[in-house]
Amino acid sequence: MTDNAPIVLVTGGSRGLGRNAALALARDGSDVIVTFLDNRTQADATVKEIEAAGRRAAALRLDTGDIDAFPAFVAETRTVLGGWQRERIDGLLNNAGMGVHAAFAETTPEQFDWLYRVHLKGVYFLTQALLPLIRDGGRIVNVSSGLARFSMEGYSAYAAMKGAVEVLTRYLAKELGARGIGVNVLAPGAIETDFGGGRVRDDAAINAWVAANTALGRAGVPDDIGAAAAALLSPRMGWVNGQRVEASGGMLL
């Protein structure tokens, strides 16, 4: 372990795709700060797995839908960095989120606002709050969804937020270019996780439909996404900027 190893902050990094990305980053040699919402036990387990890979790790609680909590979170992040004798992070993965499956005609204002706070407003203002901690030449990846390209019933509000994040990403790439910070979008396709109640993972009919409509012949698994996120956050991808990279196996081409 070296003190100059890259440090990446992963929101929603204690479970699901965020956890998988955090472990992939650790295997690639990065120290990782993960955030979690409620499950401290799960977050601590992720920290232990990162440490078992030989990297430093920390878990901080964060509700990405509560922008009033961001100043205190930034202060906590500074404290962690200070303990590692560092002042800056090298990468930010805006991954935290959840899904709402509801027909357009049945989506409530409360559901819409919940998705907006977490998936758009939270991403916007958390990134803004963390800018002083991101080193010049660093990397930002915002997680979107294949649903921003292809349409499936029941995800209109969720996909609209992800579409907005994709537009925001291009603006961030433009405005942060003067600091050499690259900003891209990673858009997963249908993945076997607990997202949306685990529909792709647990419903055999849905899983079969996804496989039949994916060029590579199967639904995605978390390892497909963690590796892609780690790659986009790597300096090796430094000339890739302002782009949308879909990791869907070629779904609905």
Rank of each mutant, 00 (worst) to 15 (best):
Gly180Tyr: 14
Thr77His: 04
Arg15Gly: 03
Phe150Leu: 06
Gln42Cys: 06
Ala45Glu: 15
Ile67Val: 15
Gly163Trp: 09
Trp239Thr: 08
Pro132Tyr: 14
Leu253Met: 14
Phe125Arg: 04
Gln111Arg: 12
Ala22Gln: 09
Leu147Phe: 06
Gly154Arg: 11
Leu115Trp: 04
Met1Ser: 14
Ile134Gln: 03
Pro132Arg: 13
Gly16Ile: 02
Ile89Trp: 03
Arg86Leu: 05
Pro132Thr: 11
Arg179Tyr: 09
Asp66Trp: 13
Asp90His: 07
Val100His: 02
Pro235Cys: 08
Arg179His: 09
Ala190Lys: 08
Ala227Gln: 13
Asp28Arg: 12
Gly65Thr: 05
Glu106Leu: 13
Asn213Thr: 08
Ser156Cys: 11
Tyr116Gly: 00
Leu92Gly: 01
Pro235His: 11
Ser156Arg: 12
Gly54Met: 11
Gly177His: 09
Ile33Val: 15
Asp202Phe: 11
Ala21Thr: 10
Tyr116Trp: 15
Gly198Arg: 14
Ala247Pro: 05
Ile140Lys: 07
Ala72Val: 06
Gly189Ala: 05
Thr11Phe: 03
Gly16Asp: 05
Asn207Lys: 15
Thr77Pro: 01
Ile134Leu: 15
Gly138Val: 04
Ser30Met: 08
Arg117Ala: 08
Pro222Phe: 14
Ala231Gln: 06
Ser234Ala: 07
Arg56Tyr: 09
Ala247Glu: 02
Thr11Tyr: 05
Asn95Ile: 10
Thr193Lys: 11
Ala105Phe: 14
Asn94Gln: 14
Gly220Ala: 08
Leu253Ser: 10
Ala178Ile: 15
Val32Met: 11
Ala53Asn: 07
Val200Ile: 15
Gly220Pro: 06
Asn241Gly: 00
Arg15Asp: 05
Val80Ile: 14
Thr35Lys: 12
Ala178Glu: 15
Asp66Cys: 05
Arg244Ile: 12
Val221Met: 07
Gly242Leu: 10
Val185Glu: 02
Asp68Thr: 13
Val10Arg: 08
Gln128Tyr: 12
Lys48Cys: 01
Gly242Cys: 02
Trp209Phe: 12
